[in-house]
């Protein structure tokens, strides 16, 4: 089978200190997105394990697999988790969740954890949507704008380009800076038309890296307009898969004239982390009620 360039690395992580052994309470969040699914486990409100993988065609199955993978090698079983919250596009498909919370709320809360209480604007660049969120020092949402209608400015658009140019998704960011001069951004908004435009550029003799640069800056500009409409207030943090693509992030920072914060963990798991934190709060409330 041909190499699938859009395919990013699925992996799991656990705290080397094995903090779950001493924890009074374990909670979890599962973020079933349209493209990826993450499960995060919290030991007394601190991250102790997570897994990130691709969403399959069966959402309940994807939720279960991500949870199992996060717990693997910790010696924990699902019944040890006091409270589970489902979030994301497929949040109703988390069979073992106690309740669901929207991904907007979870991303803001997760960003608050990853970036600290000073974060006021969160940009979540997901697989099939993009959200600009404003929040307070507790990670509570005060306003948001979202695009979930159009692939431009989403991870899916970047996957299409990875495939078109045969460049692994993780390398796009670095390669997009290996150019003599920053090219004009791709002018088409629509991903389908941008693809045609890119093929034209390649035929004209543009090196691959220049096309990548042109697409990254088009995407940066696309999400910039969303942020501008919402109004940006510092500090600023990015979550979701594209947060790991320096090709988009650095160009966006330049356009915004504002640096994005550095996350404590993989920014793609912010939604699941937020859900797990809500689970922690709710479980505590239940315990004292």
């Amino acid at each position: 089978m041909a190499q699938e360039f859009w395919r990013w690395k699925e992996y799991n992580w656990r705290d080397p200190e094995e903090s779950w052994n001493k924890a009074k309470m374990l909670t979890a969040g599962v973020d079933v997105g349209s493209v990826s699914t993450q499960a995060a486990v919290m030991a007394d409100g601190q991250l102790c394990a997570f897994a990130s993988m691709r969403t399959g065609s069966d959402s309940p199955d994807s939720a279960r697999k991500a949870m199992d993978w996060a717990l693997r090698e910790t010696g924990l079983t699902l019944d040890r988790i006091r409270y589970v919250i489902g979030t994301g596009y497929g949040r109703v498909n988390v069979p073992f969740a106690h309740r669901t919370i929207t991904e907007i709320a979870c991303h803001a809360r997760g960003a608050n954890f990853m970036y600290g209480p000073n974060v006021r604007t969160v940009l979540d660049m997901g697989g099939q949507d993009c959200k600009a969120i404003r929040c307070d020092e507790k990670g509570k949402v005060s306003a948001f704008l979202m695009n979930d209608k159009c692939a431009a400015g989403t991870g899916r658009g970047m996957e299409v380009f990875a495939d078109l140019l045969s460049v692994p998704l993780e390398q796009i960011g670095d390669l997009s800076y290996e150019v003599d001069q920053e090219p004009q951004p791709v002018s088409s908004t629509c991903v389908v038309f941008a693809k045609t435009e890119a093929v034209g550029l390649l035929r004209k003799g543009w090196p691959k890296n220049n096309v990548l640069a042109a697409y990254c800056s088009a995407m940066a500009h696309r999400v910039y307009t969303l942020l501008e409409r919402l109004g940006v207030e510092g500090d600023f943090g990015i979550t979701g898969g594209i947060a790991k693509n320096s090709g988009v992030v650095k160009r966006l920072e330049k356009e915004l004239n504002l640096k994005a914060l550095t996350p404590r963990y993989d920014p793609q798991i912010a939604g699941a982390v937020g859900a797990a934190l809500f689970a922690h709060t709710l479980a505590q409330k239940e315990a004292t009620a």
Binding site: K149, C190, V191
Partner: peptide, 16 residues
């Protein structure tokens, strides 16, 4: 889905 790119995945899901 309205977007062509998203509709492609939706069509694949419908086929499945």
């Amino acid at each position: 889905a309205q977007c062509t790119v998203f509709a492609e995945s939706e069509v694949v899901s419908l086929v499945h």
